[in-house]
Computed example of a mutant assay.
Amino acid sequence: MNVDRFRLSLAGAGIAVMTAMAAAPALAQSDLPAGVSALLDDAAAEGTVSLFVSSDARTAEDEARLEEAIANDLGIDIDIRLVGGAPDPVYVQQLVQQHNAGVGVPVDLIVTVPTLLGVLNEAGAIAATDWAALDANPEEVAEQVHGLFVAEFARPIFYNTNLLKPDEVPTSIEELLSEKWAGRIVTAALPDVFSPWAIGLGEDKTLEMVETLLVDLRAGIAPAPAAIRTLVESGEYPIGFGIRISGDQIANNSPVAYAPIKAPLVPRFAGVLEQSSNKNAAALVAWWLSQTENGQTLSAEVLEWPRHTTPGTDLYELSKLTDGVYSAPAEWWMTKGVEAGNAVARLLQDI
């Protein structure tokens, strides 16, 4: 796929997801796994699920769309409350402190990266949900952290289409790290922006990449990953490193597009909080988001939690543009991913 065609595909991604959602049939009650059907009465009695959505802003309309779809698919009413807060690492530490203090937690369900789910699980703050009993895909269950795969995010490279023509855009990490782009790239100096690249590059080459970007190429440093989007869209920098193009940018046809450089994906896993009083409803919502067509579509459309395998999403288009993506199982994130993150953190302190 050439870059011009990709821009058109990306601009239509939101429409494609909405069309897929409208076309997906409601689940028949008789088609539900026995373990899921067994949860319905207790989940309906609990009636509420508070879901952490990181620092993203969500609306009552977003909650209503999820509630309507769950009612159509599962035949029960669940009051969905989308709870925003601090970035995931900070919020997870708050949950650990609340758990250790024995106070009630503000959410029933969290969807985050495996390493942070591991922090919660090590503190005893994640319930030992039996996802296998719900007939979840075994390849999407992270038993070591009691998590269920829901979605992904990427750490790609993107660019301002008003400033760069498609044939001017770097097509490999090697091209990106050339002196040509000195002072023209913006990123965020955070370990988790760079450590996922160790999936494809290995830890040593990832560290070399970070040092080249920040020292040799004097990359601009955004205060947070989300700010990279604004700095590139505004034209202050032609190239951004380390965050997806946002749903709003796609909807507004903003002058941004992905560079054709294979990028790493970071999985998001759902975990039910141990202190939740709505464990059945939380497990049911997590299962629905993860294991059903409508759930996956609404995860991408409403929560901006896509999978690269879901047609119509920007990650799907990115994977086609770059002929694949870098990905790794949960076990990698709990071992080599942690090691890579620690190594990048040490390097950032020294730079």
Rank of each mutant, 00 (worst) to 15 (best):
A136G: 06
I173V: 09
A132R: 00
E203G: 05
L163E: 15
L148A: 03
Y159S: 01
M209H: 04
T171L: 04
E208G: 09
A188V: 05
D135I: 04
E208I: 05
R155F: 10
D167P: 14
E139M: 14
S172E: 07
A188I: 08
I199V: 05
D135C: 04
N160G: 15
L207D: 04
D135E: 14
V145E: 05
G183Q: 06
V193Y: 01
T171Q: 09
P166C: 10
S178P: 15
I185T: 13
G200I: 00
N162S: 11
N162M: 09
L163S: 15
L190Q: 13
T187Y: 12
E203Q: 11
F158A: 02
P191R: 07
A182G: 12
E174H: 02
L177S: 06
I173K: 09
A151D: 00
L164W: 04
A189V: 00
I185W: 14
V210H: 09
F158R: 01
L190H: 12
D167K: 14
E143S: 12
K205A: 14
A151L: 02
G147E: 04
V193R: 03
N137F: 02
V210I: 06
I157S: 12
H146I: 08
E152R: 06
A188Q: 08
T171C: 07
S172N: 13
T161W: 00
W197H: 15
V169E: 10
Q144A: 15
M209W: 03
A188H: 13
P170M: 05
S178D: 15
D167C: 15
P156N: 08
W181M: 14
K165M: 08
S195D: 12
A198V: 12
L201Y: 14
L148Q: 02
K165D: 11
H146L: 12
F153Y: 05
I199H: 10
N137R: 01
F153D: 07
P170S: 05
F149V: 00
P196D: 13
I157K: 11
A154H: 06
L134N: 13
P191T: 03
K205L: 12
N160W: 13
T187W: 11
W181V: 10
I199A: 08
I173P: 06
P156C: 03
L207M: 05
R184Y: 06
V193I: 07
S178E: 15
E140S: 14
D135V: 06
E203M: 08
W197G: 09
S178I: 13
A182Y: 05
K165E: 13
E152I: 00
D192G: 09
K180G: 02
P156L: 03
P138M: 07
E203I: 04
V150L: 08
W197S: 10
F194Y: 11
E208H: 08
E140A: 15
V210T: 09
E175Q: 07
P156E: 06
T161Y: 03
V150F: 06
I157N: 11
L164K: 04
I157G: 12
E140N: 13
L163H: 12
E175R: 04
T206G: 10
G200S: 00
L201F: 14
